[in-house]
Simulated scan of single mutants.
Amino acid sequence: MGDNNEQKAMQLMAEAEKKLQYKGFFSSLFGGGSTRYEDAIECYQRAGNMFKMSKNWSKAGRAFCEAANLHFRLESRHNAATMYIDAANCFKKSDLEEAVSCLLKAIEIYIDMGRFTMAAKHHQNIAEIYESSPNLIDKAIHHYEQAADYFKGEESTSSANKCMLKVAQYAAQLEDYEKAINIYEQVASSSLESSLLKYSAKEYFFRAALCHLAVDLLNAQHAIEKYAQQYPAFQDSREYKLVKNLCEHLEDQNIDGFTETIKAYDSISRLDQWYTTILLRIKKANNDDPDLR
């Protein structure tokens, strides 16, 4: 069945090419070029769908790209962007760089049309593509920041914050703690302004406090007191008590106590990979045992 669909798709691609090359007498006399383009677009779209059915993602992407280029020539910008997105969705399964290239073309069109929320969503898509490769995290950060900027411009604060939290997560992983702290503090403050979101401020203050602790013990101690003033409920939280205890153990150079405190916390509230990575770095930085450094 797949082969059959692929054959049909190849025929439709050839048909589209033929339509684009054909210039009849009446067509040139009465300017019927747009009809040729429209007919070719239809063939490319159908071919793309046939390639999709046979799971030939690369050729499906190419067919949708051809359709997008023709829509663009006809100044049908919305349709061109839609086709580039269709192409990108196919390339995601076969060629990530091609997928990004198509998404960037769609973004350019959306920005030109003043559709910044759409542009933001697709910058987010690109960031998600890049974050699957550990060596491309810098690119993921860049596109999450772009997405956040456009979301902010459209007053989509919660979407902007979601993107900035991703930036903070990766900034901390790359040991750019200053950047991570600034974002976590900003998002926590913005969350406190909403009765629905204020409870999530606890997590952002906790993350910011751990980033401080990865840099400087005294700063971390000042930070948690400042956070408790901003959000009094934070002082009663297990997260606040954990950071306070960790600070005390580091002050006493009690690495065993530091480890036991984390274990006790983790047995009740599981710490994910991000937390364990940061805590392990703090432990190593404060341990005199050369094997743990």
Rank of each mutant, 00 (worst) to 15 (best):
Y199C: 13
Q173K: 13
E128W: 03
L192E: 00
T117S: 15
D138R: 14
A168Q: 01
K139S: 15
M113W: 09
F116S: 07
E154G: 05
E98S: 07
E185K: 11
A119I: 03
S190H: 08
S195Q: 15
L104D: 08
M118N: 10
A180C: 05
G153N: 11
L196G: 07
A119H: 02
E98G: 00
L197Q: 11
S159T: 07
M113Y: 09
A120F: 01
A106W: 00
E178P: 06
A168P: 02
Y150I: 07
T117A: 10
C102Q: 04
Q146T: 09
S132A: 11
D149P: 00
S156Y: 15
A127I: 03
C163K: 03
A140K: 00
A168D: 02
S158N: 12
E154Y: 07
M113K: 15
L196I: 11
A171R: 04
A168K: 04
L136N: 12
H142S: 15
E98T: 00
A106M: 00
Q186D: 09
T117D: 11
A127P: 04
H142M: 14
G114L: 01
S159P: 09
H143T: 03
E154Q: 12
I107E: 00
M164Q: 10
I107A: 03
K179E: 06
D112R: 11
D138G: 15
Q146G: 14
V100F: 00
E154F: 05
E98N: 12
I183G: 06
Q146D: 12
G153T: 06
L192F: 03
A148S: 08
I111L: 14
V167F: 00
S158P: 09
Y150E: 09
S101V: 02
Y144E: 02
Y150G: 05
A172P: 05
E145D: 11
Y110T: 01
E145T: 10
S195L: 13
T157K: 13
S158M: 15
I126Y: 00
L165W: 00
K105D: 07
K152Y: 15
S158C: 11
K179G: 04
Y170Q: 05
S190V: 08
I141V: 10
L174N: 11
K198D: 05
Q169R: 11
Y130F: 09
